[in-house]
Amino acid sequence: MARCSALSKPSVRPDPVMASSTPVLAWSEWPCPLPGGGTRGESALVCDHSRRKRLLIIPALFEEGNRMRRITAEVMRRLGGAGIDSFLPELPGLGESTVALRAQTPGDWQLAMQGAAGHFGATHALAIRGGALVAPRGLPGWRYGMVSGASLLKMLMRARIVAMREGGIEETQPALLATGREKGLALAGYQLSADFIDEFVTLVPDPASPLADIAQDMVGGGALWLRAEPGEDEGQADALAAIIAMGLAT
């Protein structure tokens, strides 16, 4: 998309710190606040050179998190080259986290992201897809491809219905949701508690959020979270990084 390539080249300029090489991403441990008090170590992918502009990235959720992982890392590398540090924490219960997903609620995730923002000294946030539902409050920044909790849950329930139907078992979304709210539910391999489902299905992106919306037509091409298999797109990574770098340049 011409609009995006025109944006990307002038804005993502090499930073003196990173000019000689491709920015390296590293793992870092951060103290994740727990709902009852205290903290537990969780991991994050970081590009940290103690720079002034520091972006917390709240990842897409569930299977979409896998599909978006590569472009997220590519955006971090591009931002690193443009003088912007970035931090991609794991959500408790997903990815490399050592705790069980069934013990988490969306409120726990929001608390975790608030803690990550404080620990890493984030000045801005980029929430990807369902990540916007658990973004820390108060930070300016962006939300890309925002989606409601009900919509994500619907996709997960449909995946289960399709899979079960292949085995001759009929299920419906209303029945699954009722069961999930009462007892919890395994959806596409994700063990979600009753409390999680009850809370998550009501979540919608905050209309008063300070995060500016990035629609897919600003990034160009087909959204990577739709891909049947994880994919990559350098043009989309360029465009996303350019939108953020230009926003932080002012």
Partner: peptide, 8 residues
């Protein structure tokens, strides 16, 4: 095109 992709 597995069950998750069909759902999407």
């Amino acid at each position: 095109l597995d069950s998750m992709a069909v759902a999407g």
